[in-house]
């Protein structure tokens, strides 16, 4: 109920901005101001939505069956795409760093570079972006269609809270399954580097494995998994948020899908920097 209230307040703001349109076009400061204000409005709406969604994740009733289905959808079915992405990332990393490091005779650092890049950066970010495209879009489209065909209203009339039934299972499953995906992606990515290193660049297999493990610290893997959890949350949140607030039939659902993927991708990249700063910044 409060959500609709907020929506209406937002509509009123939009109309207000519209009626001021002529004046603001003449006044660049007003244009900047109103853009900034509507940005803050959107940010506030998103924060309220996220708070309410997280609240419903931790309070009963929870739906294990639905969470399980989302785990399958988000985690299991994303395995091939995440696996392929990290495999080729690891392979290309080995190739690139070898040819680059050869210029100052530092070829021996290849294995370390591969494992650190994969675990800290590439596996979480690439997995996050791939899942945003695969799962975030699907969530926005599904929930958006449910919105415009009144299925979300129907849930409410059947005494079922759409936040609990639709949004909480997706948030929980995405936040928990992304780290698992990334852990698997770490292994595959390092394996990709190993294959190129040993079979193409002529490294000794034992040496390669040893220098992979030698400089790897727990924090490298852990920071990557924390990133993965945050990215999973972002993907599900943006998918649900844009789907839940979509309106206006097929076109509205299409816009929601696009917005979900774009905003999730941008937020992933920003959050990536923030988390890296948190772990390794000094």
């Amino acid at each position: 109920m409060r959500a609709t209230l907020r929506e209406e307040a937002f509509d009123a703001d939009v109309r207000l901005a519209h009626s001021d349109g002529i004046q603001s076009r003449m006044n660049p400061l007003a244009t900047i101001g109103s853009t900034f204000l509507s940005f803050l409005t959107a940010l506030g709406r998103l924060a309220l939505f996220a708070g309410s969604a997280v609240g419903h994740c931790v309070r009963p009733p929870i739906y294990p069956r639905l969470i399980g289905r989302q785990f399958l959808e988000i985690g299991y079915y994303s395995l091939p795409v995440v696996g392929l992405t990290t495999l080729f990332s690891g392979m290309v990393l080995a190739l690139q760093s070898y040819s680059g490091f050869a210029r100052f005779s530092a070829e021996s650092a290849v294995a370390t570079v591969v494992v650190l890049s994969i675990t800290r950066e590439l596996a979480p970010v690439l997995a996050g972006l791939m899942v945003a495209g695969r799962v975030g879009a699907a969530m926005a489209a599904e929930i958006g269609t449910m919105r415009v065909t009144e299925q979300i209203d129907a849930l409410t009339t059947l005494s079922t809270n759409p936040f609990k039934y639709l949004i909480a299972p997706r948030l929980i499953a995405a936040t928990l399954s992304l780290p698992i995906l990334v852990l698997i992606g770490d292994v595959i990515g390092v394996f990709g580097g190993y294959v190129v290193g040993v079979y193409k660049l002529g490294f000794n297999a034992g040496n390669y494995i040893q220098s992979t493990v030698q400089f790897l610290e727990q924090i490298d893997v852990i920071s990557g998994l924390v990133k993965a959890g945050v990215f999973g949350f972002i993907v599900a949140l943006m998918g649900c948020y844009h789907g839940y607030h979509s309106r206006g039939g097929a076109q509205g659902v299409g816009a929601a899908t696009t917005n979900a993927v774009v905003t999730a991708s941008i937020m992933i990249l920003i959050a990536n920097y923030a988390i890296t700063e948190l772990f390794f910044g000094r």
Partner: peptide, 24 residues
């Protein structure tokens, strides 16, 4: 508040214009 509203919702049934069946 939402919790009380859910209680009186149980008295209601609703036939939506487009059916609004859950297609999943």
């Amino acid at each position: 508040p939402r919790a009380e509203r859910e209680a009186y919702m149980r008295k209601f049934g609703m036939l939506f214009q487009g059916g609004a069946l859950f297609d999943s």
